[in-house]
Design a protein around this nucleic acid. Structure first.
Lengths: 234, 234
DNA sequence: ATTTACTTGTCGATGACAAGCAAGTGAGGC
DNA sequence: GCCTCACTTGCTTGTCATCGACAAGTAAAT
């Protein structure tokens, strides 16, 4: 239905801000010659609009975020966001896609080649670290995640697919651990994986609603201990 | 700011449909005399509009749900929902309030006078039962819950307060259990309560995204077993 | 010269509100 | 006790600013 234009390259979490930061120095390197490649122009405007959309979503929610505001905050006309993305839903879809690809890549970096128990713990630490270090980023990402449950479009299907992937990743780690003998074979891998995701989503939800009432580190540490207790072969 | 008109009586989950169902028989009792009290008129139109809004939210999400559609599906003009609630946000706020009061009352009925371990298990069963038996109702309720994280208004504050209440209820049960000696004193009541809520919210979230991929009973049963294992005094 | 990035013009739909209409209410006269 | 008439309240219609969406046009790169 909506032929989504593919993401330009695999952006990492850090790239998002880097594009904007390196953009200004670039104009200093070649002071007046503002003759950018077409690809550079779209990459820049895309990055600026993503950043603007992210800010606006965190500031006033998706409902109050208008395409006009996105375009203008990014430094362009009121029509660019509409023209580039086609629709508000498509912009949010692109953002979700952007977040997901960035996040899965960063997660893969953090987990590395680990498997079994260590992979589970590393993933939990990765989520916890990013919640505190990239707070705004994660906020916008999860606002979009939580909101897309009420729209029956492509975004939701993508989300469902991502959930499946996360769950099966975790389940795979557990199975590795069982094969290694470090995890009790009685543990139901898929069931743990589901609970793992429930914990993360549920915790982030409560954190988003009232950040000051949630001690993220305490909760994550508790879940790590619970995980070790659950896996223990006794 | 927005002087919310108080809820008319404490509506239970069942009342929502009952109001609509008893409304028609009533006109049969006094066939032509459609002379309703003013209070009856607003109660009826309120109930009809809540029902309509709930349906529309489940069918097409909050974003696509218009005040015009709410009024008209409820059997009135396009302007009534707007006139009655003042704004779309206020309507959703009223709905959230309505859901929360109904739900807490129903939960209290299910848990009864139980405390300790039994209260925790009963609450888990209550949530599970309602997810399957009042599926649409819970769907609309949680869509609104998850969505209101991106709106910085009264609704979110109400939610935060409700979360606090839920968490402290659970924590209280655990403390009762510890006092009774049926729960291991090493268990951190607040920490368990938070994990309890995380499980429920996270599970419902994953269920909303892809109902067919989630075996609710299996996950709830698993969490009940995990709870028993966590509480066990060994 | 042609393609591509971006802007401006415009239309139907929506939320919000004001003004008006209709249904319900209550006090006084018969 | 019931009618009537002024008053209150529920509900509808009219209207406007704004938004999403798209078409047409302009500026920039190839």
């Amino acid at each position: 239905m909506n032929a989504l234009p593919l993401m330009k390259g695999k952006a990492s979490l850090r790239e998002v801000t880097e594009v904007l930061q390196t953009a200004l120095p670039k104009t200093r390197v070649r002071p007046r010659i503002s003759r950018r490649t077409q690809a550079e122009r779209t990459a820049l405007s895309d990055a600026r609009m993503f950043e603007a959309a992210m800010q606006l979503i965190v500031e006033q929610g998706t409902h109050a975020t208008t395409l006009k505001a996105v375009g203008e905050r990014a430094g362009y006309s009121r029509g660019l966001a509409s023209s580039r993305f086609g629709s508000k839903d498509a912009l949010f879809g692109q953002l979700v896609l952007h977040f997901n690809t960035s996040w899965t890549q960063e997660l893969a970096n953090k987990v590395g080649t680990r498997g079994g128990v260590q992979a589970c713990l590393a993933a939990l630490c990765a989520v916890e670290d990013f919640l505190s270090s990239h707070s705004k980023y994660m906020q916008a990402m999860y606002i979009l995640w939580f909101e897309s449950i009420s729209t029956h479009n492509d975004v939701r299907d993508h989300l469902a697919a991502y959930h499946e992937i996360y769950r099966s990743d975790v389940a795979h780690w557990v199975e590795e651990g069982i094969a290694n003998g470090e995890i009790d074979p009685a543990v139901d891998a898929e069931c743990y994986a589901f609970g793992f995701c429930s914990f993360i989503f549920g915790t982030i939800y409560q954190w988003l609603v009232a950040p000051n009432n949630v001690d993220l580190h305490k909760q994550f540490e508790a879940f790590r201990q619970l995980t070790l207790k659950t896996f223990a072969t006794d």
